[in-house]
Write a protein that binds this DNA or RNA. Structure first.
Lengths: 229, 229
DNA sequence: GCAAAAGTGTTGGGCCTACACCCATGC
DNA sequence: GCATGGGTGTAGGCCCAACACTTTTGC
């Protein structure tokens, strides 16, 4: 098979963020160049000849949006021959999460005219097959959250328990039983309760702060944990 | 980014089979050409300019081994810059299953000097990073089997219940309680009991034959089924 | 003192695990 | 008739869902 393939390889990133007031959001850029100039799209771009795929994602994210991610995993590779009007382009999509604290720091640059967080409930029209890619990412986020505590990655390093509650009930789209949820999560032993109160928001009793113990979590995963909500 | 990337795209297939006597096996080919000439490797090859990735997998499998697969899903994309000694090659790996009945029909051709089923317990040295890819595929097979009934895809269209039992206890590497297993599986309602006996193997009472009801299964998946062994 | 959010236990039912014997067939 | 694999029921325990009131704080 010595014929030239003439296939290009890109990476795309679906980066989720979370904020108590806004809910779950995804990071999009407005394209500066054709094709789909002026349209919203997933951040991403061509892989450099000598960099790994993961590096390419991190680089493109930094260049286009200024965001640094806290969690990254490969999602899926999209390779339909006609998915890009220019030529055949195969895109390896990555699924990323930024912590709440990193949430606002956006600065569009490079190929992007603009970068913004969009609520996953209210998305604009997207370029290429990015609608399909994003849908797959949202499905993955939902299903991963209910059997692995990646939800924790969306929160700050220290957070009040109610943030976790809100995150889960928002994303699952249904109310959760607060008592049972707390019992279940605490039962896993991967949350450490701190000796610190959350800043009061003007009303109501301030909660205690917690933090995620990643070491204990990794231990559990090895032993074959079972989470389920 | 108008510089030529000079990256090639291949697909690789990790195809599993099952047979009561032999256990779980994976399909490998012996390479006819350099690099790694004469070594065992995963079947696969370069993607043609206008075919989809799935088609490329199916074509390569047919060309190199003569096998037709019953189940196929994307596994992962391997893109480390140095994973092929010739040049940068990104490989999209697919995870496939053939039914027991298709098991023996191998005929090496094309790039392959030979094609053979290997027990996953006794694997030869593999070319490229195929060891790593295969390991990931086996992990996926194991974890998928315990929460989705893809194990059924490894069996024939009609099979005695004991085949399913043996498959699961082999792959899980531990004995399973026959009564509980039967109750659990039958409780899902995705197996239809047929009015037909399995051919007797010379000893013992012949069992009834069953078949997998894919429609009911798909229905269940939509409603959010929960399997777990 | 009142509005808002945090924190906390018990019970009933369903599900899952553990466990052993009889049945049909081939030789 | 014996060896081999097929087929079946039950009881106890554990876990999970359902459920409401008291506490702390800001205003």
């Amino acid at each position: 098979m010595k014929t030239t393939q003439n296939i290009d390889v890109t990476v795309d990133a679906i980066v989720f963020g979370y904020n108590k007031e806004i809910g779950v959001t995804v990071l999009l850029i407005k394209r500066k160049n054709d094709p789909f100039k002026g349209q919203w799209a997933l951040p991403g771009g061509f892989v450099e000849p000598t960099e790994s795929l993961e590096l390419a994602v991190a680089r493109e994210l930094k260049e286009e949006t200024g965001v640094k991610i806290n969690y990254l995993e490969q999602l899926y590779t999209f390779g339909q021959p006609d998915r890009d009007p220019r030529k055949r382009i195969i895109s390896v999509a990555y699924f990323g999460i930024v912590k709440s604290s990193q949430f606002k720091k956006l600065k569009a640059a490079d190929d992007a005219e603009d970068a913004e967080w969009f609520k996953i409930k209210h998305l604009p029209a997207l370029a290429f097959d990015h609608q399909k890619i994003l849908k797959m990412a949202i499905d993955r986020l939902r299903s991963k959250m209910i059997y692995q505590p990646i939800g924790f990655e969306l929160l700050d390093k220290k957070f009040p328990f109610s943030d976790l509650e809100h995150l889960y009930s928002t994303l699952l789209g249904r109310p959760i039983d607060r008592r049972n949820f707390r019992k279940k999560v605490m039962g896993l032993g991967i949350l450490e309760e701190l000796d610190e109160k959350a800043p009061s928001l003007g009303a109501g009793r301030p909660g205690n702060l917690f933090q995620f113990n990643k070491a204990t979590y990794n231990q559990l995963v090895k032993e074959g944990m079972h989470f389920e909500i």
